[in-house]
Simulated scan of single mutants.
Amino acid sequence: MVVFYNPDAGCIERANRLAQWCRCVVVDNTPGREASARIGAQLDASIVYLPNHENLGIATALNVGIESLIADGFRIAMLFDQDSDSTLQLITGLADVAQAAIARGEPVALVGPAYEDARLRGLAPFVRFGYFRLQRVIPDGDVPIDVDFLITSGSCVNLACWRDIGPMDDSLFIDFVDTEWCIRAKSRGFRVLGVPWIGMRHELGDEPIRAFGRNYPMHSAVRHYYLFRNAVALLKRGYVPWTWKSTELIKLPVRILIYACFTPDGATHVKMAFRGLWHGLVGRMGPLRSR
């Protein structure tokens, strides 16, 4: 399945290509019925198109698509952002790993590839949580690697455990949705596996900025609101491990410094970050509403 939000021609082309290889569900968060009609007319006839006519957030969109696949009897679901490049090798490779684990009776919730963003640092490592810093695991070898979370795009969900883990958290709307679901899955005894021999091209965020000698992924000020708000929300939850919490407590002030010193219109980014901190503390969740 693919989640749309104001897709361009390339996004539609990628969804149409995906439909040639497997059952494709597109959940569209683009606002407006006219936009939905225009987008739907450009999609392959085999695609199941589910327009929301408004931006309900990535979590809700994923839940809608996954419930559609469960209702149709599918046992696994591949999840993609609209800007991720899927290949037949990626789809079949991850499906084989997931189905083999399921056949062995292993409690695997999610498998996913290594992803590459050439704008940042090339092939990104897999991640395990550690106290005050992430443990980065080089994607190498021919054996799946136990990790603590995977990005949503390119991941393959074992739908047999969907009810046991529960859906994506709608209240988060966007940012840390994948992290929270993986943490919840692991807290309930399920495994999350990185597949080092399968790769995917994926651009993380907007154009990165250079700060402290390295490239950092960049987002809009509104996205930074959600990032800070949801980080605080997860810091308050008991099932979230202190390994993740300790690392995030270190990273939050560093992000503020980067926004203030290295981001165009840094004052707006800092303002939205502090607004997110406050809303996270008082429990104001869901979409950000204009006053």
Rank of each mutant, 00 (worst) to 15 (best):
M1P: 01
N6W: 04
P7K: 13
G10K: 11
C11E: 00
A15V: 13
L18T: 13
A19Q: 01
W21M: 03
W21C: 07
R23Q: 14
V25N: 00
V26D: 11
V27R: 08
P31N: 11
E34W: 14
A37P: 13
G40Y: 10
A41F: 07
L43G: 14
A45D: 12
Y49Q: 05
Y49K: 14
P51C: 00
P51Y: 06
H53Q: 08
E54N: 11
L56V: 10
G57K: 02
I58C: 07
T60Q: 11
L62K: 15
G65H: 04
E67S: 11
E67P: 12
E67L: 13
A71F: 02
F74T: 13
R75G: 14
M78R: 05
F80T: 05
D81G: 14
D81A: 12
Q82S: 14
Q82C: 01
Q82L: 07
D83Y: 07
S84L: 04
T87P: 01
L88P: 10
T92W: 15
T92H: 11
L94T: 01
A95N: 02
V97H: 09
P107W: 01
V108P: 08
A109S: 15
A114G: 06
Y115K: 03
R119F: 08
A124Y: 04
P125L: 03
R128A: 08
R133C: 07
R133L: 05
Q135V: 03
Q135H: 13
V137M: 09
I138E: 15
I138D: 14
P139T: 02
D140A: 06
G141P: 04
V143F: 08
I145F: 02
V147F: 10
F149T: 11
I151T: 01
S153Q: 12
G154L: 01
N158E: 12
C161M: 12
R163K: 03
I165G: 03
P167R: 15
D169P: 08
D169V: 12
L172N: 05
I174A: 01
I174Y: 00
D175C: 15
V177M: 10
D178G: 00
A185W: 02
S187C: 07
R188D: 06
F190A: 03
P196D: 06
W197G: 09
I198E: 05
M200K: 01
H202Y: 04
G205H: 03
G205L: 11
P208W: 10
R210F: 09
A211Y: 15
F212Q: 03
R214P: 01
P217T: 04
M218N: 10
S220G: 14
R223K: 07
H224Y: 12
Y225D: 06
Y226K: 04
L227E: 02
F228S: 04
F228N: 00
F228E: 00
A233Y: 06
A233K: 09
L234N: 00
R237W: 02
G238D: 15
T243D: 11
W244M: 05
K245F: 03
T247W: 08
L249W: 09
L249H: 02
K251T: 03
K251H: 01
V254N: 00
V254T: 07
R255M: 00
I256L: 12
I258H: 12
Y259G: 02
A260D: 12
F262E: 02
G266D: 00
T268F: 13
V270G: 07
V270C: 08
V270A: 13
K271R: 14
R275I: 13
L277I: 09
H279S: 04
G280N: 01
G280S: 05
L281D: 02
V282M: 12
G283K: 13
S290K: 15
S290W: 10
